[in-house]
Amino acid sequence: MQQWMVRFWEQRADAILLNALQVALIIALLVVARWIGGRVIQLVVRALTRKMELSERRQAQIRTISGLLNSVLSYVLLFVGILSILGALGVNLGPILATAGVTGLAISFGAQQIVRDVINGFFILVEDQFTVGEEVTIDGIHGVVETMGMRITRLRDDEGRLITLSNSSISRVINHSRGQATLQLEVGIAAEYGLTQARQWLEEACTTFSHSSLHSSLELHGPVTLDPTRYLFRIRGKVPPPQVEAVGDVLRAYLLERAQADGVPLR
């Protein structure tokens, strides 16, 4: 047995050492490639989060994407490394690649929907179309985003129902929680009060009204009708979309209380 081992080593020593060196070189190259790829992803994420002055929510999304990219990079390098090591050891990769191709083709037919969901979910996350807690309308379905993942998105509608959407089916998104919305309120004052006095009273009321959600001072327009019995004015202001109703309620209450105190006949 010992003599057989010695003869085997003498015959195969060069090939074994060569294969070992090839495998070691492949592993070293994979480690270096993984380090370089991870470093590049880290530098890009750091540059985005520092220079673009992103919000904490957006920074968290970018970190999530970087983690996903790192995982994809690791799996790709692992697959390439296994094939390279098998090739270095003299394994015929033809049947393996053919089997993998057939298997991949079969899986791709069965998982087309899942792949589309994941790809669309990735772009939703990258493009920052919406996030958890925002009020949106997705393809005619209105609600608040409760959860969002790479494959599905869940909304809670106005009736409390939880609606699950596949990301691949999302084609049109209206985000009601971003930017500025226009608060609009119509105020009617009886004609006997006088047009000049009515305008002056409303201008003063708009000037003195304040709310933390107002992005700018209130604007007064009107009269907007030719009704001889009353003067109808329109008040406009810019507020965050989720605060339109709340600020409108506060403004109506303010005008009612002030009108009662000043004796202004609202109509």
Rank of each mutant, 00 (worst) to 15 (best):
V126H: 12
G87V: 05
E127K: 14
L83E: 02
V145N: 08
T164L: 01
I152L: 15
E127C: 10
L93G: 01
L89V: 01
L125T: 14
M148Q: 15
G160C: 02
L125W: 07
A111N: 10
L97S: 09
V145P: 06
E135Q: 13
L97G: 06
D139A: 11
G81I: 00
G149R: 01
D157R: 03
L125K: 14
G81P: 00
Q129L: 14
E146G: 09
G104H: 12
R154A: 11
D117N: 15
G110C: 06
R161F: 08
R116T: 02
V118E: 02
V145I: 13
G81A: 01
L165D: 11
D117I: 07
V126Y: 13
G94W: 08
I107S: 05
F130A: 00
V91K: 08
I107G: 02
R156M: 06
D158W: 03
L155D: 10
T103W: 14
E146R: 12
M148D: 09
M150D: 04
T137R: 13
T103L: 15
R116G: 01
Q113V: 08
S108C: 09
A111R: 04
G87R: 05
G143I: 13
E159F: 07
I114N: 03
G94L: 09
V145H: 07
M150K: 15
T164F: 00
T103D: 10
F109C: 06
I82T: 01
T103C: 13
A100N: 07
D157N: 12
F123N: 08
T164W: 00
E127P: 07
I152A: 14
I85G: 03
G104M: 13
A111E: 15
D158H: 06
I114D: 08
G81E: 00
I152G: 03
V102Y: 11
T99I: 09
G121Q: 12
Q113C: 04
F122G: 00
T164K: 02
